[in-house]
Amino acid sequence: MKGWMGKIKALSLLGFLALILSGCGKENLTALVPKGYGAEVSMDLIILTTVVMLVVFAVVMAIFIFVLIRFRKKKGQEDFIPKQVEGNHTLETVWTVIPILLLIIIAIPTVLATFDLADETEASDSINIDVTGYQFWWHFDYQGEDFQTSQDIYIPVGEKVYFNMLSSDVIHYFWVPSLSGKLDVNPENENTFYIEAYEEGVYWGKCAEFCGPSHSLMDFKVIVVSKEEYEQWVADMKNVDPDEEPESAVAVEGKELFQENNCMGCHAIGSSPVQTGPNLTNFGNRETLAGVEDLDKDTLVKWLLDPEEIKPGNKMTDNYPALNKEDAEKIAEYLLQLKHTDITSESAEN
């Protein structure tokens, strides 16, 4: 008995060692450090199934290694003919029944969790955000609040926030690994699920369904702030004046260029039904540019001159008047000063 237990212990130790060596990944991105309800439910099931499976694996390996050592052909016994065993009913019953029992141990919590996470009864009393997936960016419409954002979602901590998701083109996946498992964003049949974050912070979201050339660059952020900060943020976002004059002279020129080049044909600032391109409200407070790049002037100018270089296959390339570098810099100046609220990712990190 002791030998068996030893082997099981050694093997599970090896497994944990592998985990430690590889690390658990980046905090607020990895699913291995859950910080929301959905992610926690999934993680519990991941741990349960892993443990059960490691036990099975240990048994298989123990028999396997024993057989290999004990029953290899011995020198001098080349002509030995083993007994031709047909089978053994007792043994075969044992390894049919035990796996069934193990599967029941896994199946019951799986079914319970499936129904638990599909629960939408509280949706009508909660914050609802309509999500639209585009190649290769995200549009968020806060239901009943009359404003829209792109790429960054602000939600309050410790509250169920419901996401109603639909795609405008191909299938995308809405995945914030640290907060919750993923759900499809289909062109038909709106999908709903909720996120309940335990801690404030900036969480990475990713598109997990293959959606074209820039599939790997379709990141978004979920910024979890306190309830008060969230309410302040909503109030600020509702009061955006799209025509507000910038302070610096360069930004004023940028604003004029923004209008001359008809950028707002696709990009709204403030509440608007226009959503051909990302809504640029509060752009200066964005976490990233285009989901993956640092938000700074040089990168933004690079984007304005040639978006294709940053996001292959995006729908902006060649669909706007060509800009010279000087104009691009002015527009960048204008966009970067679009800061419509004091609630930023820093509020989440404090």
């Binding site: 699913a31 959905g38 992610a39 439910v41 999934s42 993680m43 099931l45 991941i46 199934t49 892993t50 059960v52 499976m53 490691l54 099975v56 694996f57 298989v60 390996m61 599967l103 896994i106 799986t110 969790a113 499936t114 996470l117 996946y173 690994p177 919750s180 498992g181 993923k182 759900l183 997990a208 369904e209 293959f210």
Partner: peptide, 23 residues
């Protein structure tokens, strides 16, 4: 193959699969 079969059971647990899926 036993490892592949084990992870097969793990991905079969639907709620756990919400994390594994397409990764």
């Amino acid at each position: 193959f036993t490892i592949g079969g084990m992870t097969g059971i793990m991905v079969a647990a639907s709620v756990a699969d919400y994390q594994y899926h397409d990764t």
